[in-house]
Every structure is written in C-alpha cells, then in structure tokens.
Design a protein around this nucleic acid. Structure first.
Length: 135
DNA sequence: GCCAACGTTGGC
DNA sequence: GCCAACGTTGGC
C-alpha cells in the first residue's frame, strides 16, 4: 500500500465536484515526475485530495480505483491517467500553513516541491494528516 | 497581481 | 549537450 496526494484547483475541479460525479479520471497531468508517480499507483492506494490556490488545504480522502492507462484526452502516448473514487470528506481540513508549521511534515514533497501535482507520501505523513483531519 | 521556482523548448 | 528564453504553477 502506498500513499499519495493529488492537487486540484477547486475552480477547475473541486472535491465537491469529485463527490458529485462519484469517480474521476485524473487527466491533464503533463509533468514527467507527476506522471511517474501516477504510474506507480496501485489499485486501492489511498490518496489525499488537496485544493491548491483557493483553500490550500487537504479536504478529503480518495482511493485508486483503476491503475494507469493511456490518457484518452491526448494522442501523445507519453501521458497516462488513473481513476480515483472518493472515500471520505474530512470533518476538518488540514491547511498548508499547518503542514508547513509541523516539524513532522516539513519534509513533505508538497512543501519542498510546490509545483508537483501528484506527490508520494510516507505512511507516517499520511497517517498524521488523516489523524489531524479527524481531531 | 506579483514573483519565485522550475520545467520545457529551441538555437547554437 | 548547454543554456537562455519562455511558459506555467502556485503561494503570498
């Protein structure tokens, strides 16, 4: 089991929209590092859903429903998508400001590489964020 | 709205 | 293969 965090701008694709649809094909990733992370996702892996720009907080939990396959929105064979399904809307969001302030989270790729949109998490980081989201 | 960080492109 | 120019992302 691996843990991930995906970013989405809520104006383009919000958590609420994701829940309303019940699933999501995570397309539009055009960055090799993010692509490589998606290719490493396994069905059942858990994924934190983060709102960038507006909110700047982790809002919910998703899981990988289908492993990577070619991105149908482009003819370019380099890019892939995965399918995600919502698991849980967190009772409490975890903000970027908090994550930056916590010693245990300051090495997260989310903070160190702010432009990466698909980010691997350590189990400890994942567990801590989920715990904070339920406080 | 600005700007820093960083990835990509293209000329040489 | 290097590097300058440029575009995009995302925090502030």
């Amino acid at each position: 089991m691996n843990y991930w965090l995906v970013k989405s701008e809520p104006f383009k694709y919000s958590w609420d929209h994701f829940v309303a649809e019940g699933k999501s094909m995570w397309d539009g990733v055009r960055n090799y590092q993010a692509r490589n992370n998606m290719m490493a996702m396994k069905a059942g892996d858990l994924v934190l859903f983060y709102h960038s720009n507006e909110g700047k907080e982790v809002v919910g939990l998703a899981k990988v429903a289908k492993e990577h396959y070619p991105d149908p929105t482009t003819d370019d064979p380099r890019w892939v998508v995965v399918n995600l399904v919502p698991v849980e809307k967190f009772p409490k969001t975890v903000t970027l400001a908090y994550m930056k302030s916590d010693e245990r989270l300051k090495d997260m790729a989310l903070i160190k590489q702010s432009r990466l949109s698909v980010i691997p998490l350590k189990a400890e980081e994942f567990d801590l964020i989920v715990a904070l989201a339920h406080e």
